[in-house]
Design a protein around this nucleic acid. Structure first.
Lengths: 143, 143
DNA sequence: CTTAATCTCTATAGAAATTATAGACAAATA
DNA sequence: TATTTGTCTATAATTTCTATAGAGATTAAG
């Protein structure tokens, strides 16, 4: 499952992408327009900033803005930042590999193989879909 | 993430599939051989029985056995029984559709579309992989 | 008909993750 | 110096996941 936190992060990023030309955007604007709990959103934005996606300015006239081009930010990378591995079990993750707690022998684990396929299919989709791709969807609808 | 419960369920089913010709199998055998907490496994087996995958006999000489042919039981169906929808967000589930709590407008939700792709890719894999396919993996290795 | 073996049922507890909030603090502008 | 805004630390509330305890029901065997 995609967590609410990750979904909020994507919503916030898409909002910032749509308002890129307007300079700094207030947390409260994003929270209100995207209906995200304000304090929860703060934590998410800090996280995205730490990961180099956003910049911020404090104080009066402050706010947040996207640092990266929406065409460079994949959905997969955002989900990994917030939720961790895309893989359904840790032993098939590329970037966060870990032995499964309950695993007896990884080499003969039947479940592993099918889950690896799921991971790869998921990563193929999410790592090749960018914020700009998502934004286009509604731009297209508006035309 | 695949839950431990679902993983245990698959392990138990595979164990039962491999021992199909031996008649009734004890819970404690499965628990011990697959290193699954005994009491937790009991609950899982009841669940699988309720879902028509297993039959059981109580009392001395009792135990569990597969009812279905391993070639008829898909990995996807087992995961759905235990963990629920394969879809990463409820609004793209086929069998368990539900509006997302935090969704403002499903028709213009950008996230929905990419998550639908993920759901479809996942379902394609898991619904076309059966217990018998998994079993073959190690049979093949043993040859 | 008694005993031992086995699955079943109900309840609950413990642990971890997720979601959310409160409030003091720091920085910038006017 | 007051106001606006992001930052930091702590914690609380909720939910989900994992696991256990123990009494009950059923069957086979002697």
């Amino acid at each position: 499952m995609l967590s609410k936190k990750a979904k909020y992060a994507l919503k916030a990023l898409l909002y910032l992408a749509r308002h890129q030309q307007e300079g700094l955007i207030l947390i409260s604007d994003i929270a209100e327009k995207e209906r995200i709990p304000r304090k929860f959103l703060e934590a998410i934005l800090v996280d995205l900033k730490t990961n180099g996606l956003l910049q911020s300015v404090r104080g009066k006239k402050g706010g947040y803005a996207l640092v990266k081009n929406p065409a460079e930010v994949s959905v997969g990378s955002v989900i990994r930042m917030i939720d961790g591995p895309l893989a359904p079990i840790p032993c098939v993750s590329h970037l966060y590999y870990r032995k499964c707690d309950e695993c007896i022998d990884e080499a003969t684990c039947e479940i592993r193989i099918v889950m690896k396929k799921v991971r790869d299919a998921t990563a193929d989709i999410l790592d090749s879909t960018f914020l700009s791709d998502l934004d286009k969807i509604n731009t297209f609808l508006e035309e």
